[in-house]
């Protein structure tokens, strides 16, 4: 850290004094950080920040990045079979966007001091987490609709408040991502709408996909508030702006409206608006399943990681070649200059 640059350092610092100076730096840093939080301002990469803040952000942003990258797979699975050329183009553009979004997020995480290579290694080694929803299979074309409408819909609910996250690079990455993703949910909605207005077989396909993706999408907001120990701290740090349950409830409310337009139903007979709390409520979710999938015991966990590992391994020689070429070129430039 550049923290000591502007502090006057004694010429011949005695050891105890140095320790004291260090304590003072920490205290100053903490005070500055607290003021930034109180003002709802932004922390930037080279600012002093509490170690736990850095760690929490690094975990959250890298998990978010991994989710984008792993999340490409269930949809990429259908690019080759998209049933019209227009849908093929849309889906290709969407999956490609997700690569871009992963990349923006890895870049934001890198400003916290970890290399993308390291994060990728952690992911492939199974040491990192990503959104558990991408461990479910995309079985029919209607899943492209349900993923866009429900999964991206839930993601957008989560992400829009993150545009104001207290960590500058994260917030800025989210602004770009949210702008780009504005078409993702709509294209999913339109896939479902088209199917719902299509043949009985198509409508059945759409309903079946909504049935399968509804609960996992609701669980994307994370465990219930009383079972989410890190939430409180994240909210104090202005990383998280709304609680898991709050966002989930808002999302359910939006889906209730939209599913009517689709002419489909949500697979949840207990959805209702609670007049007392003014909040939308939903039926019970299977959190045991959520934990199982998160722990690696979902339908596609090993398949998803293997695919990522293979792409990374297969590309190693290409990355090495480009690096070697750049090195040779810069050596030549230097020789020329000398």
């Amino acid at each position: 850290m550049a923290a000591q640059n502007l502090q006057s350092v004694p010429d011949q610092p005695a050891a105890p004094q140095e320790a004291k100076a260090q304590d003072q730096l920490e205290a100053d840093g903490q005070a500055y950080f607290d003021r930034v939080m109180a003002d709802d301002s932004r922390i930037e990469p080279k600012d002093w920040m509490p170690a736990a803040y850095r760690k929490t952000l690094l975990r959250q942003i890298s998990q978010h990045a991994h989710s984008e990258i792993i999340g490409m797979q269930p949809e990429a699975n259908w690019i080759s079979r998209a049933p019209s050329l227009k849908r093929k183009a849309i889906l290709m553009a969407k999956v490609q966007d997700e690569a871009g979004h992963g990349l923006y997020l890895y870049s934001a995480a890198e400003t916290l001091g970890q290399s993308r290579d390291q994060m990728m290694d952690d992911l492939i080694a199974g040491k990192a987490r990503y959104s558990s929803i991408f461990n479910y299979p995309a079985l029919t074309w209607a899943d492209m609709g349900a993923i866009g409408w429900l999964v991206d819909g839930a993601a957008i609910c989560n992400q829009v408040p993150l545009c104001r996250a207290s960590y500058g690079p994260y917030g800025r990455a989210m602004v770009r991502i949210c702008k780009e993703e504005s078409f993702h949910q709509r294209q999913g909605f339109e896939i479902l709408l088209e199917l719902s207005n299509g043949t009985p077989a198509q409508k059945q396909m759409a309903q079946d996909a909504v049935n399968r993706w509804y609960a996992p999408a609701l669980m994307m907001f994370g465990p219930p508030d009383d079972d989410s120990p890190n939430s409180k701290q994240s909210m104090a740090w202005n990383i998280k702006r709304f609680s898991n349950d709050e966002l989930r409830s808002r999302f359910v409310g939006m889906m209730v409206e939209q599913v009517r337009v689709l002419g489909l139903t949500l697979p949840d007979s207990e959805v209702r608006f609670n007049e007392d709390t003014k909040k939308w409520e939903h039926g019970p979710l299977d959190w045991d399943e959520f934990k199982e999938v998160l722990a690696g015991r979902g339908p596609c966990n090993s398949q998803r990681l293997e695919r990522r590992r293979q792409a990374h391994d297969d590309g190693a020689w290409v990355r090495e070649a480009a690096a070697a070429y750049a090195h040779k070129k810069s050596m030549k430039t230097k020789e020329f200059a000398a």
């Binding site: 080759s80 093929k88 290709m92 490609q96 990349l103 695919r307 590309g315 290409v318």
Partner: peptide, 20 residues
């Protein structure tokens, strides 16, 4: 289109996607 999610580096996923 098959390369998207399988390219040697994320930047190349995007580049090949654009060409596709």
């Amino acid at each position: 289109g098959h390369w998207i999610s399988r390219a040697p580096e994320l930047e190349e996923d995007v580049a090949l996607g654009n060409i596709a």
